[in-house]
Design a protein around this nucleic acid. Structure first.
Lengths: 235, 235
DNA sequence: ACCTGAACACCGTTCAAGT
DNA sequence: ACCTGAACACCGTTCAAGT
């Protein structure tokens, strides 16, 4: 893979390179673009090199390997999270909910990257800013430090898990046809509740409803724990 | 890759094959063993063929491709979930909690398979039995069908998300050293809550504490929604 | 310092062929 | 019906070499 000879100035020194010099940052941005455009499986060192018009092996000079590339990808996605302004006067519940929706929106901006993001701990250096903000809301809500810690994780895992399943569901709808529509042709005596629920749950309920239901429940449960130091806070 | 000639009986018909005939079931079991033993990346059609002492391409006769193999893997893991006996006399909260722990235990039996399991919707044909049981508990707890639906998803996503992050954390502890221990060398004025929480949250709190905290909160929040048809059930 | 290119040991999948 | 084996188009990574 040859590159055009660099332009040479009067004194024989290159004036400006035909392409920008490679850098970790440029590589990560190109990788994220590639993933956004063609999906996670399309991210190979070779295709990435091609998209940067560079020998694939040049990447290894800036990034140790593919694992590190995935790490950088996660960092980039998480870095895009911008939590809304604290919104004075609103309750901790509402602020937490807003923050969770901002988190969700940031993740949905790069749906193809979700599997890599979800396979990593929620509290990473790249995602410290949102964690800081959420911890503030939780402490304000009356949780102990240990509880606030756990609560951030719980919210993160719920959101990541929900989104991961959702986009996977969107991506391969043939799997959907094979796995979910068969529900209605099931032995009714063996699965009475499944039948009852499928028949009575209105069809208009979709991902947005499920997400909000779960998030509300989780946040309500978390905040209702405020003050109590014991783990199981139910009567 | 040659196989020893089959043993031939008196009439020239094979009496018993040197190896069992290949079948979808045997393939899936071998795949799960391979993943358990050597990790998810080690699962290749070629290694799987070798472990079955069969030409790798023989697998394609029984399983359409690798995607279908992953599907079957998820099905197998989910099929091992055995929820505890309903336990008469206990509250819906306690039953749901027990079920969630059984779910968690089944998933932890094959930690290496978690990424594939998590990248799939929670309600699949293979996992219908546990879904049926949990729906029962939730309806009994007073939830509407639509709410019960959403609640099953929420629990599943929380559990899967938590476990996925947990085992990823266990698998590569060098990432941990790189990403989490640096927390303490952070600008204190920029991350006051992170510092407060890290310093005051006792070290003995680990995954088990976080998991139980999140699960309790989620279940409490879900059950406190009973009866109300509106989504946001907080005062 | 930064990039190239050949080479190595792998992949999933197709397809014609064997029994 | 069930399995083989060659072939194709890919992978990630190492390493010596170029500038």
């Amino acid at each position: 893979m040859k590159r055009s000879r660099p332009v040479v100035g009067e004194r024989g020194r290159p004036v400006r390179r035909a392409t920008l010099p490679l850098s970790r940052d440029r590589i990560v941005r190109a990788a994220l673009e590639l993933v956004d455009r063609e999906g996670l499986p399309a991210l190979s060192m070779r295709k990435l090199g091609a998209s940067l018009r560079v020998d694939p092996m040049a990447i290894y000079y800036h990034v140790p390997g593919k694992a590190a590339l995935y790490d950088a990808l996660v960092e980039a996605v998480m870095g895009e999270i911008s939590l809304p302004a604290p919104g004075a006067g609103t309750s901790p519940f509402e602020r937490l909910k807003e923050a969770a929706y901002a988190y969700k929106a940031a993740l949905l901006a790069h749906p193809n990257a979700l599997p890599v993001v979800a396979a990593r701990p929620v509290r990473t250096v790249g995602a410290l800013r949102p964690v800081e903000v959420m911890l503030g809301f939780l402490l304000e809500g009356g949780l102990s430090p240990a509880q606030a810690f756990a609560a951030v994780d719980a919210c993160g895992h719920f959101i990541l898990g929900s989104l991961q399943a959702y986009v996977a569901h969107l991506t391969n709808s043939e799997v959907h046809a094979h796995e979910e529509l068969q529900l209605e042709s099931l032995p009714r005596e063996e699965f009475p509740h499944v039948h009852e629920v499928v028949e009575n749950a209105a069809e208009e309920y979709g991902f947005e409803y499920w997400f909000e239901f779960g998030l509300d429940a989780l946040l309500r449960g978390i905040l209702s724990n405020a003050g109590k130091e014991s783990i199981a806070g139910h009567e």
